[in-house]
Write a protein that binds this DNA or RNA. Structure first.
Length: 352
DNA sequence: CAGGCGTGGCC
DNA sequence: TGGCCAAGCCT
């Protein structure tokens, strides 16, 4: 039976031989490490890679990010999801630029104080950039530890977070915390995968409790089940002399601070007549004629299913004195950060 | 503190 | 196909 020292030694050796070459592994600059960690929260490397390149090109340092507008940052983030990450990233950049003279904080407590930085991200930056002994516990680490030690405490419970956090800290290599943390995560991502892990050819298959007890596909345990809420969005598409109209989503809801067509939301798939009755509230003339109505489509979010359709009205102008709508020239429309359904519609919009 | 927050890939 | 998962955080 392998002890902790042997386990971490094997993991480090495995990591050196099997790690992927990624741009954020070419540096320890905390700005770039932070950027990569925020982008990769709940996100696959394949999806986040292009965004990392995009952000580092546009904002080579934290001050340039701080000086950008939130609208511009959200536009760069468009398509990546969980947009609060972008808003918090921008706010944290402003904090660093204005209150810390552009110097990235170099202690765990100061790092975790940044907006959008929690225990995981703070530990990652502290260990990778500053060689500080903080163990990361992400989805990969939960899975590796749960299987290796045969732990069936739910990872999304308070007790589970405490238990796995303590175990990860115990296992941490205090001399090489950054290497150790990345080895744990990379091992989970490439070897000890959620489905069909490669146990036949695994450096830990002689000491893995889950494998010995045939519980690989039972661990880790998750208790949480999420409830899906269904919403119905009637998007009103207005075109007017090669212009269209958008509004900004505000308030604490999905897609906060992104732009969309004027919207009539309902609790079900209502008749068009019911939708038209509410146009007045948007500042759109209620006598507008309908040009086309799309089929219902569906956008799946983590906690909601958005059923949406597009209702295109005749060429008309909103009552500008009463509306929050933004009149946008066709050539400027792609400057706005929009959610996926709007992005797809804009790509095929027929301009009048 | 349990619930809310996007999108895409996998089987 | 629908459900699960992916380098979590905020309130």
């Amino acid at each position: 039976m392998a002890d902790f020292e042997q386990i971490k030694g094997r993991l480090h050796h495995w990591y050196q031989a099997n790690k992927r070459q990624l741009p954020w592994r070419e540096t320890t600059d905390p700005y770039f490490i932070w950027l990569s960690e925020v982008i990769l929260q709940q996100t696959r490397i394949d999806q986040g890679l292009a965004y990392f390149r995009r952000f580092t090109e546009h904002y080579p340092n934290v001050k340039l990010l701080a000086n950008a507008s939130e609208d511009e940052v959200l536009k760069l983030w468009q398509g990546l999801g969980y947009y609060s990450r972008a808003r918090n990233l921008h706010q944290a950049a402003k904090t660093i630029a204005q209150q810390m003279n552009g110097n990235f904080p170099d202690t765990y407590n100061n790092i975790i104080a940044l907006k959008g930085v929690g225990e995981y991200t703070a530990a990652a930056i502290a260990s990778i950039s500053f060689n500080l002994p903080h163990a990361v516990v992400d989805g990969n680490v939960f899975r590796v530890l749960a299987r290796l030690f045969g732990i069936d405490t739910p990872i999304d419970s308070t007790a589970g977070k405490k238990l796995f956090g303590e175990l990860a800290a115990e296992l941490l290599d205090h001399h090489h915390p950054g290497l150790h943390n990345q080895a744990m995560m990379e091992f989970g991502a490439l070897q000890c995968t959620p489905k069909n892990p490669n146990c036949t050819n695994c450096i830990l298959n002689d000491c893995c409790i889950a494998l010995q007890e045939s519980k690989i596909d039972k661990l880790p345990v998750k208790q949480g089940k999420i409830k899906i809420r269904h919403r119905y969005f009637n998007y009103i598409v207005l075109t007017d002399d090669r212009h269209s109209y958008l509004q900004k989503r505000t308030g604490n809801d999905i897609w906060k601070n992104l732009f969309e067509f004027p919207l009539v939301e309902a609790g079900e798939k209502t008749e068009i007549d019911q939708v038209l009755k509410q146009l007045d509230q948007l500042g759109i003339p209620t006598e507008s004629q309908i040009l086309s109505v799309s089929n219902w489509q569906k956008q799946v979010l983590s906690h909601q299913h958005i059923h949406y359709r597009f209702i295109q009205l005749e060429q008309t102008s909103p009552k500008t004195d009463r509306s929050n709508l933004i009149r946008v020239d066709q050539k400027d429309i792609f400057k706005f950060a929009v959610p996926k359904p709007i992005e797809q519609k804009l790509a095929q919009l027929e301009w009048i």
